Computed example of a mutant assay.
Amino acid sequence: MTSTQKGDFMRVLVLGATGRLGTMLRWAWGRAGIGLEPIWQSRAERPGAAWARCDILGDPAGLAALCTCADVIVTLAGVTPASGRDMGGNTDLALAVQRAAGGRPHLLASSAAVYGRAEGLCRDSDAVMPAAPYGVAKHAMEQAVLATGGPVTCLRIGNVGGADAILGQAEQGGALVLDQFPDGRTPRRSYIGPATLAGVLAGLAHVAGQGRALPEILNVAAPGTVEMGALLEAADHPWTPRAAPETAIAEVVLDITTLSRFTRPDPASGTAPVLVAEWRAFQEAARP
Rank of each mutant, 00 (worst) to 15 (best):
C67E: 09
A61N: 15
R85W: 15
L66F: 14
I56R: 03
I56V: 11
E37W: 04
L25E: 05
W40I: 06
D59P: 00
L57M: 05
A77Y: 02
G78N: 08
R46E: 05
P81I: 12
D55M: 02
I39T: 09
A82P: 02
E37G: 15
L66A: 08
G78V: 07
A65T: 13
D59G: 04
P38Y: 04
A52I: 05
P47R: 03
I39E: 08
D59K: 01
G33V: 07
T80I: 02
A50M: 02
R46Q: 12
G30Y: 13
I73V: 08
I34W: 05
Q41H: 10
D92E: 15
C54D: 12
A50C: 03
N90W: 09
C54Q: 02
D59M: 05
T91W: 09
C67Y: 06
T80Y: 09
I56C: 06
L25Y: 12
E37I: 12
V79Y: 09
R46T: 05
G30P: 04
T75E: 13
W40E: 04
G84F: 14
G33I: 06
R53L: 01
T23H: 08
A52D: 08
A28G: 08
R85Y: 13
A28W: 01
W29S: 03
E37P: 05
Q41E: 09
D59A: 03
E37H: 09
T91L: 10
D92R: 13
L57V: 10
L25T: 10
I34V: 15
S42E: 01
L66D: 07
G89N: 07
D92H: 14
R31E: 13
A77I: 12
